[in-house]
Design a protein around this nucleic acid. Sequence first.
DNA 1: CCTACCGATCGGTAGG
DNA 2: CCTACCGATCGGTAGG
Lengths: 199, 199
Amino acid sequence: MSPRKSVVEARQTRQRIIDRGLAIASVDGLEGLTIGRLATEMEMSKAGVLGHFGTKESIQLAVVDAAAEMFAQEVPQRVRDVPPGLPHLRAVCEAWVSYLERNILPGGCFFTAAAAEFDGRGGPVRDAIAGMEALWQRDLSIHIRRAVSLGDLPPDTDPDQLVYELWAVMLALNHFLQLNHDRSAPDRARRTLHRLLGT
Amino acid sequence: MSPRKSVVEARQTRQRIIDRGLAIASVDGLEGLTIGRLATEMEMSKAGVLGHFGTKESIQLAVVDAAAEMFAQEVPQRVRDVPPGLPHLRAVCEAWVSYLERNILPGGCFFTAAAAEFDGRGGPVRDAIAGMEALWQRDLSIHIRRAVSLGDLPPDTDPDQLVYELWAVMLALNHFLQLNHDRSAPDRARRTLHRLLGT
DNA sequence: CCTACCGATCGGTAGG
DNA sequence: CCTACCGATCGGTAGG
């Protein structure tokens, strides 16, 4: 029997479970993330793992939040000092490409994988994934409109259309990296961005 | 006890299992495609279902083949009479958009979902998915090079780059249709294609 | 945080 | 094509 842990230690354990869960889910999906597997990899009992969350769905939701936090730190946070308008938009996209290129999570972009897995279902997990994507799309749209109003992009730019095309670039980048291990994919993504956002 | 069926009937049953499996897999993935679920929906016993294939992996491989056949009938077959070069390439892309827009499979593009599900693994199923995608990319590349040699596309066109960008358009179309039920996505896809392939 | 357990479901087999 | 079964694993609970 393990000694009872302090509140701080318990919180650390909880965070370690979430981090491990994020790595598992990026490879094998949010359903491949089973309590038994988490327990084995954490060298804990299943009840020990589950006690921090209550249900598997709570684990999944915590992992979705952790993925959003990681993305926020790796992309928008890294370019927060770049001046607004087109420079900021370009920096955001470059940070995004770099994030995918560096393969921080073993299975690539968590949200792309989770969206494909849950898009045919209902429920809180699907809603959380869709909500995070919508937030980030809104952010991109704001950067685009700012670039237009600053005269950095043509006045007839359709922000939603550009969001669609930027999203497409990143989906394809993740797809070619993960399925084909195509190392020329980041370069192709950058060339497309070049065309979309000028030199 | 059901009467023993003829060879023809057995083949039909096998095909019905595959068709049902393709629909299930497009929504819940190739792992959500369980033998028990197939048996319930087919109103057969698990052993009855499994007897046609031997293993679950064989079912998965048969479903991948069926998905490729469906795609072949819905996209390249439909435009086989369109003259080569840019007209053919445009017709192919329009048939592809239309195929995704009509949502023939309840869960959208099977290959996108399957690729996201299996891209972190090894094995025959993953190889079959990647192989089908590679085949279709080769096809696209041939159409592009034909259009270049006919003078329909600029001589400095990079075929692999254009394949990347066309693939991106279709991944995004499927993504926005399935996750967000965004009915403006087909229009956005067509506008991007317009820009990529001229008016 | 553990052991010990629950009913359900998984892929698959034996035998007919 | 069926019934009847196998061991393994699923999410989750009781009790400490």
